[in-house]
Amino acid sequence: MKKSRLPFATLLLVLVFFYLPIGFLVLNSFNNSRYASKWNGFSTRWYERLTERDDLVAALGNSLKIATGASLASMVLGTAAAFALRHRASKLQDAHRLLVAVPLVLPDILMGMSLLLLFISFGLKLSLFTITLAHITFCLSYVALVVQARLQDFDFNAVEAARDLGATKLQAFVKVTLPLLAPGILAGGLLAFTLSIDDYVITYFVKGPGSDTLPTLVYAMIKKSKDLPVINALSSIMLLVTFAVVAVSQRLTRPTPSSI
């Protein structure tokens, strides 16, 4: 029987569609020329230039701080939300479920605006802290989603077994529930981390002066064409990091062989 070529062709098309622009970007980050239109030989000068930019390093630091804070906080809150949502249905639960899911689809611009209004009306000074708070609001939903999925096929008999064997509620949670859910929580956290790292729209609304993150700084830099190749280099590095994070997160969410 002749194998159909269709799947292969589709795959190729998808790959080209997705990765041609990215490949182009990576290629250009090694282009000695300032202009993308012509290849002037291989060079790592843009990467070297990258290390000299204090503002970039500061923004990267900000981004990392925010992403770390936001993903840690959303891991805790998202897991709590997922657990709360497991309990039996009621009107309140339906509302809860909806409210947790909505930020996944809410336009960023709307979220950014509303958060900004909130912060202002509360008299909060816009800073890294407000950005982190804003990021937690949407990251939480993603963590909750991932952990909820994990809870779907979670064997709660194991928790009962722990209680049966003498563990208190807390001991059972720490020794059984948490280790079994850890991969899911961690995967959710990594997802939150990547989302936080590259958020632009919401950050733009709630950032104060001088609290640039990587995306907001890059956007500002794009306006100056001499910085473009530096951004290419920066983007390539971020791409590498993102790939690594996604790979790790996929490993973690891969269904573990069940205990049955």
Binding site: D155, N157, E160, A161, R163, D164, L165, K175, S258
Partner: peptide, 30 residues
Amino acid sequence: LPPDKRPVNTVFQSYALFPHLSVRDNIAFG
């Protein structure tokens, strides 16, 4: 009394072993 305070133990139909622990550690849990 809650389950952890009763001197009885259960063998579950679905086994309910701890998948993250070895056989030895499963038995040593109690």
